[in-house]
Design a protein around this nucleic acid. Structure first.
Ligand SMILES: [Zn+2]
Length: 289
DNA sequence: CGTATTTGACCAGCGC
DNA sequence: GCGCTGGTCAAATACG
């Protein structure tokens, strides 16, 4: 299923890329000038100019979208490559992405590396789900993921590794949400209760902390933060696994609550693999503090 | 009135 | 030892 979706993305991306370059507008403008010099039909020139402007705007928008799409596609391709050949990691650098060393231009690359590193598991616990307008990628990293040692590390890698080791089950979910959404309350099928919000150092957008409020014995936590540059990307980091039956999407064809048409409701249910192995002795202790 | 969200305070881990 | 940063708590507030 994932491959099919990715193939679709590939074809789309290639098609857009072929027709993407901004060479046509200049040609159109030349033709338009010629028409104007001939002084045949001014109104037609005006119409053409208006259309040209509109097309230019659309082209720019499409270009932007295409760029994001290409970036995502590159991430997915890298991930797939890493999954297929888990041992052959040639061009992976795993730059200082989590450390946050102000990598402005290489933000996408860093994300790609992160995804790729997470996908370097022996078993492929990654799931991709895409809708017509939304984009969601879920990556579940396991405890044995920290075995892979980075290659040429500039400075860090021990802190990140320790963090990964400490976290038993961390699954990242990249969702493509509308930037008009100001509340990071991502309704992904579960009931979350927000318990904190902090402003991180390298990201101007605040990070929201959620906790599963569906079951008292479920201490699944979730961190939601939108990307610094791609305001349309919401990075939801799920920590833990639900030990209760998920609410079966009881939200029918009702109206929205806040009248927000483009809400963030992440309906793309990520097929989180329960291959974490031993799930026992995990749901019992729910004692907080 | 009960519940969810907000938001400042508090704390723990880590680097210098 | 001190400062910084991320994570959590809990009182206050908003909302249904
Ligand atoms: Zn839960």
């Amino acid at each position: 299923m994932d491959e099919q979706w990715m193939i679709g993305q590939t074809s789309l991306s290639l098609g857009l890329n072929v027709g993407g370059p901004r060479g046509a507008p200049s040609v159109t403008r030349v033709l338009l000038e010629e028409d104007f010099m001939s002084s045949k039909k001014n109104h037609e020139v005006e119409a053409l100019e208006a259309e040209l402007r509109r097309v230019g705007e659309e082209n720019r928008r499409l270009s932007h979208m295409l760029r994001a799409l290409v970036a995502k596609y590159a991430d997915l391709q890298c991930k797939v490559s890493g999954t297929m050949a888990a041992a052959n990691n040639h061009h992976q650098s795993w730059t200082t992405s989590e450390d946050g060393s102000s990598a402005s231009a290489t933000r996408k690359r860093a994300r790609s590396d992160s995804l790729d590193t997470a996908s370097r598991n022996p078993s492929p616990p990654l799931a991709a789900a895409g809708s017509s307008g939304r984009f969601a990628v879920s990556v579940t990293v396991g405890p044995d993921q920290a075995e892979c040692t980075p290659v040429h590390e500039p400075c860090n890698s021990k802190r990140v590794r320790a963090d990964e080791v400490k976290a038993s089950r961390v699954s990242k979910l990249y969702v493509h949400a509308d930037p008009s959404d100001v509340s990071l309350v991502v309704k992904d099928g579960f009931q979350w209760r927000k318990y904190g919000q902090k402003v991180t150092k390298d990201n101007p957008c605040p990070r929201a902390y959620f906790r599963c409020s569906f079951a008292p014995s479920c201490q699944v936590k979730k961190k939601v933060q939108r990307s610094a540059e791609d305001k349309t990307m919401l990075v939801a980091t799920y920590d833990g696994d639900h030990n209760h039956a998920p609410p079966p999407k009881q939200q029918g064809s009702g109206g929205r609550k806040r009248g927000d048409a483009a809400a963030v409701r992440v309906s793309a249910a990520p097929v989180l693999v329960q291959q974490q192995g031993e799930s026992g002795s995990f749901d019992g202790g729910a004692g907080g503090r």
